[in-house]
Simulated assay, not measured.
Amino acid sequence: MPRQPRRRSYDQHCAAARALDLVGDRWTLLVVRELLAGPRRYTDLHADLPGVSTDMLAGRLKDMEAAELVTRRRLPPPASAFVYELTPRGRELQPVLRALAAWGAPELGEPRPTDAVRAHWYAIPLLGVLAGLGEGVVQVTLDEGEFHVRVGDDGSVAYGDGVYGAGTAREPDARLRTDTATCRALAGGELTLTEAIEAGRATFVRRASAVGVR
């Protein structure tokens, strides 16, 4: 029998309250953030969610499966590992995460001594900055690592099964190199990409044969 979601509700006939019934628990939206990069194994999710206990993560994933936000499937051989991925309903949370990241960007400041940092966590705050460069794949390199996104003139963002990917892309259309301080300024609207490049805080190189990204 499928696991039934735990009974927790604001019991309010309000769309916002209903949404929070599903995604308002601690860690849930951060699981969505990780799965926006595409299917992930449990061990990979746990590694990129520092601070979550194994029991908490397992419980959240089961609740998200019951709410039909994620699915679990086995990869074909030779991998034969189970991965979690967002359902279409779960992927609809992408603009919610983008709006939340934009709202929270002014609160970032310098990383605190206790803060974990992953390069791909800057992908969602930068989606709005990179959208409009022209359709194509942009590889972003920070001191902390690399990630890549596919952008379009209409602001849409998608890459394979996710909206971005951790690590390097195969034959990206453009490469952006910068640092986390500049990422914060870009995400918070304090700096445009053009201003960052002109100030020497970022470099942007387009592949000669690319037809999309400007």
Score class of each variant (00 low, 15 high):
H148M: 05
R184Q: 07
G200C: 08
A79N: 08
A99M: 06
E171S: 13
A67Y: 10
V157P: 01
F82Y: 12
R98N: 03
A185D: 12
G109R: 10
P77Q: 04
R184T: 08
T28E: 13
A123R: 00
D11M: 13
T87F: 05
R74V: 14
D179Q: 01
L35S: 04
L133H: 11
D179T: 00
R72P: 01
V70M: 05
E146V: 05
A19E: 15
R73T: 10
L100R: 14
A174D: 09
L108A: 10
P113T: 08
H13N: 10
A210N: 14
L133M: 13
R207E: 09
L29V: 09
R214C: 11
G189V: 01
Y10V: 11
V23M: 10
E190C: 06
S209T: 12
R72L: 06
T194C: 05
D173V: 04
D63G: 08
W103M: 08
V157F: 01
F82I: 15
Q94G: 11
R206L: 08
R3L: 14
A79S: 11
L36Q: 14
R18Q: 13
F204I: 05
A101E: 02
T182E: 03
E92S: 13
V83Y: 15
G165A: 09
A116V: 12
D173S: 10
M1Y: 07
I124L: 02
F147N: 00
G162D: 14
R40A: 15
S209E: 14
T71M: 06
T203I: 06
T54P: 01
L93T: 00
G109I: 10
R206T: 11
Y84S: 12
E92T: 13
L108S: 12
E144M: 07
V205C: 06
G189T: 01
W103C: 12
D173H: 12
Q94C: 08
L20P: 09
P5I: 13
P78E: 07
L108R: 14
C14Y: 10
W103V: 12
R170E: 10
D63T: 10
L126R: 00
A208R: 15
G152S: 11
A174W: 09
L45G: 04
P50L: 07
E85F: 05
V23R: 04
L100W: 12
A187W: 01
A123G: 02
L45F: 04
Y10I: 11
A169T: 03
L126P: 00
D179P: 00
V205W: 07
T54C: 02
L127S: 09
D55Y: 08
A208P: 06
T182P: 05
E110C: 12
H13G: 09
A99N: 07
G167P: 00
K62W: 05
V163P: 01
R33F: 06
